[in-house]
């Protein structure tokens, strides 16, 4: 359990409906399809799908959890990890280029900039889903089940936890993901989360 592993994925299928939802569309918006397709064509080859992760044993105490890299009193996480023997701590990113596209189009086409934001949001969620699915399948083979992923900043798990997460996952080196002083991640379309593993 002492090593950070890295996985790279092929692009999960694009969910256009979900992208438009992230862009603020709540109904039909046929006139956006052409523009969205233009954005998708432009971004497709520029994305990466990188994950780094590490497994830790969990020890449950009355008032806190020992996750191997932190001790936390988060009630939300304790509930989420009820019955878990270990966790997979992971960080995921779709890379820097999407940030550049968002910035580039801010000056010439705010509509495209917005759509790239939405694409980035959909991509990183799809990547996390793909990873969690794969972990669930692998764990199922050895008789374990996984819990829904849980991130720093959800409920009462403080965002400051990001610092410890970055320290143990070696994110800058493994997948080029960095944390700034305001606890924001760069590239911005990135996620860190905990997956509980139990019987």
């Amino acid at each position: 359990m002492n090593t950070v592993f890295v996985r790279a994925y092929r692009a999960p299928d694009f969910n256009k409906k979900e992208i438009l939802r992230y862009a603020g569309v709540r109904g039909d918006a046929a006139e956006l399809y052409a523009l969205l397709q233009e954005c998708l064509d432009e971004v497709e080859s520029k994305l990466v799908y990188h994950i780094c992760y590490r497994e830790f044993a969990v020890t449950h105490y009355d008032s806190y959890l020992d996750l191997g890299f932190i001790k936390t009193e988060s009630v939300g996480l304790k509930k989420n990890l009820y019955g878990c023997e270990s966790i997979i701590l992971f960080a995921a990113t779709v890379g820097m280029e999407i940030d550049r596209l968002i910035a580039r189009y801010a000056t010439v086409s705010p509509t495209k900039s917005l759509l790239f934001q939405a694409i980035g949001a959909e991509r990183i969620e799809s990547l996390c889903d793909a990873f969690c699915r794969e972990i669930a399948e692998e764990k199922a083979k050895i008789g374990f089940q996984t819990r829904p992923r849980f991130s720093a900043g959800y409920g009462d798990l403080p965002l400051e936890t990001q610092k410890e997460i970055f320290a143990v996952l070696d994110c800058p080196r493994k997948i080029g993901l960095t944390l700034n002083q305001s606890l924001l991640m760069s590239p911005s379309k990135s996620v860190t989360a905990i997956i509980g593993v139990g019987k």
Binding site: L20, A23, G24, V25, R26, A29, L35, T111
Partner: peptide, 10 residues
């Protein structure tokens, strides 16, 4: 919706 508002604005 927002993207359409922006397209019109552009």
């Amino acid at each position: 919706y927002l993207p359409q508002l922006l397209m019109s604005a552009e």
